[in-house]
Write a protein that binds this DNA or RNA. Structure first.
Length: 277
DNA sequence: AGTGTATCCTGCAGGC
DNA sequence: TGCCTGCAGGATACAC
């Protein structure tokens, strides 16, 4: 599913295609993706003009006039597909959940096979409350190596779990956590508080470079992820460890391992990322 | 403050 | 071919 780079890629692709358009109606085909009733949601987006498209953490925000925004969490398999879609051959929605119709005849479809994603329309106050639950943006100026080290030192949680906790840092998911920990040479089960200042600094740099490189590549497509025009991301071929269990480490040749904790697979090179130090 | 487990849901790959 | 199991970029709630 989409992590920060995928959400960012979608936002950038969507922005020129939908800003300025007016939503004439929302058709909710799968009410369970809403976090509110259809009777509450549909009228709040009707006849609203799209002013901007932004991202916060892994969420796509469609800002509307009238001090409200549509917040889309893409979950594992969510997509936002505008139609008419430019390229022929681009995927047509297979599991449309919400369809926004524009006054010019265009359509934006939230498509989500597994329906772990969510769509909501939030006012300013609701959004402020929601937004406060997210930690800092890892690519923002406020997220420093020093601040990361201090934050890590207060938690005995495994560092991979720490990175996945959106309240601590917003937007890192399982792929980029694995990649950043590899680049920093840190075993995913190391307690957060055990990281030295040097390691925290390395992790800080690794998270940032992995995320920004992935944005440059348009995200990582393993299976389901598609950008706003149906295309795949190019970062999958650059992965060091994610999904490569049993294959040789691209740095040292040792077999990449897969372990499961906190109900998620973790991939690492046992030689490049020793368990203890 | 942690972990482990379960839940939401669909599809696909691999083993037999 | 079919059936079964396990697995998947996320997030949350629960008991311990």
């Amino acid at each position: 599913m989409p992590e920060l780079p995928e959400a960012e890629t979608i936002v950038r692709g969507l922005r020129p295609l939908i800003v300025g358009r007016r939503i004439t109606r929302a058709e909710v085909l799968r009410p369970d993706v809403l976090r509110e009733g259809v009777r509450s949601f549909a009228p709040r987006v009707r006849n609203r003009t799209i002013l901007a498209v932004e991202r916060r953490a892994k969420n796509v925000l469609i800002l509307l006039d009238g001090s409200r925004r549509i917040a889309v969490n893409l979950g594992m398999t969510g997509r936002l597909l505008p139609f008419p879609a430019p390229p022929r051959g681009a995927r047509r929605p297979g599991h449309p959940a919400v369809r926004f119709r524009f006054s010019d005849g265009g359509v934006l479809v939230f498509d989500d096979t597994r329906r772990f994603g969510t769509v909501e329309c939030l006012g300013d106050t609701e959004w402020t409350v929601r937004e406060a639950r997210f930690g800092p943006e890892p690519l923002g100026d406020g997220w420093t190596a020093r601040a990361l080290h201090v934050a890590l030192s207060g938690s005995r949680s495994p560092v991979r779990s720490w990175l996945l906790d959106q309240r601590r840092v917003a937007g890192v998911g399982n792929i980029y956590a694995a990649e950043a920990l590899f680049l920093a040479g840190i075993h995913p089960q190391r307690p957060a508080s055990s990281l030295t200042k040097t390691e925290a600094t390395a992790l800080h740099g690794a998270v940032r470079s992995v995320l920004s490189d992935a944005i440059d590549e348009g995200g990582t497509t393993i299976r389901d992820y598609r950008n706003a025009i149906g295309g795949e991301g190019g970062y999958a071929s650059l992965l060091w460890v994610y999904g490569r269990d049993g294959e040789p480490c691209r740095r040292c040749g040792t077999a990449v391992e897969r372990i499961v904790f906190a109900n998620r697979s973790a991939f690492f090179c046992p030689r490049c990322q020793p368990a203890a130090r």
